[in-house]
Amino acid sequence: MLKKILALIVLSSFLLSCGTSKSRVKTSKNGTARTTRTSRNSKPSIRTTVDSKTGTASSSGRTETLESTSKTVVYAEVVKAYIEQFKETAKDNMKRHGIPASITLAQGILESGAGRGTLCQSANNHFGIKCHNDWTGPKVYHDDDSEQECFRKYSDPADSYNDHSLFLTTRSRYAALFKLDKDDYEGWAHGLKAAGYATDPKYPAKLIGLIQNYDLAKYDAEVLNKKYTAPTPKPQTQASAPVASVPAPVKQQPAYGTYTVEKGDTLYSISKKHNLTVDELMKLNGMSGNSLSIGQVLKIK
């Protein structure tokens, strides 16, 4: 009997310990959801950063590391699927609000982790927009710059896209952006940072990188009925080619059995250096005269 009691105590302790670090979401009657953790050492990572130019080997040839409301590593196919899903929404918003579709899509990829980030999954919030004072809709709470900050929650991704457009068009600090050309995505990328949309100093470069890597500017051209030409990759020069490149300080070694003529060399000095007569050296190289040029390669065997 005593053994049974001890076994029950041990089993109860194990079951209690298994549940101490699980996340849970509480939703209030007004539609507010709150994400909390009973373990204080497992705070989720928040804030939007991305390195779109680095990649690791994968079945797709590249992965993207996107840090939205949580660090998310996705294959390039996931990013492309996200673009395919929301490109028409972005183009429609460009027609109605004047925000380049390329910028909308790049921000959506960046802020939502290509749709895989925590905030996107729990609240359909694709752009990391916080509640601010004018939001009266449903809310969720996540740790960001401070603990448990208020973020907007949407019933549908299209609502998030529309609210993103309204967010930019109704705030005076973004007014200068709408004076730019409709397809000036680089101007928009830098303008968003300057207006305070993000604090990351690399934010413009990350948006531009996504636009160029995934050819997003073609959607701007489609809306504007312009001809679009995809960027041409820069040709690889001999200096940058991994097979042909030779480090600058290192001389390329001549092939075995040859000699490269240097400044001050004569047929006589070369023949003596390699235990040949001048006639033998000339015969090996089919020479009829004794003229030489610096860099000329001669056979010596």
Rank of each mutant, 00 (worst) to 15 (best):
D215V: 12
L110I: 00
V261W: 11
D159K: 04
A76R: 08
L166P: 00
Q85L: 13
G31I: 14
Y214Q: 06
S155A: 09
K3T: 06
V140P: 02
S269L: 07
S23I: 04
A123S: 07
N213W: 12
A176Y: 06
E77P: 02
S21E: 15
K91E: 04
N93R: 10
S160G: 00
E64Q: 13
N93I: 05
G98A: 12
L15D: 09
F14Q: 09
Y228P: 03
L8T: 12
G286D: 07
H274S: 02
P254V: 04
T49D: 14
V243H: 15
T27F: 00
L166R: 08
R37Y: 15
T266C: 03
M287N: 11
T35C: 10
L298T: 02
I129K: 12
T104I: 15
T36I: 08
D220T: 12
L105V: 06
G137I: 02
A33K: 12
C120W: 09
C131L: 05
K234W: 08
C18E: 13
G117E: 11
L105Q: 02
F167S: 04
A81K: 08
L8K: 03
V73M: 03
D51Y: 13
H132M: 02
G128T: 04
R40P: 14
D220P: 14
W135R: 02
P231S: 14
K182F: 09
I270S: 01
N41L: 02
L276D: 01
Y203F: 15
V50A: 13
T38N: 11
L224V: 05
Y82A: 07
I300W: 04
S39N: 15
N285H: 05
A114Q: 09
R24N: 10
H142N: 15
N124D: 00
Y268R: 02
Y268V: 01
K130L: 03
T32Q: 09
A123F: 05
T38V: 07
S269Q: 02
E280L: 13
R152H: 05
I300M: 05
K71R: 15
V261C: 07
K273E: 06
R47H: 12
A217R: 07
A255Y: 09
S21L: 09
V79W: 00
T136H: 13
Q296E: 06
I211T: 07
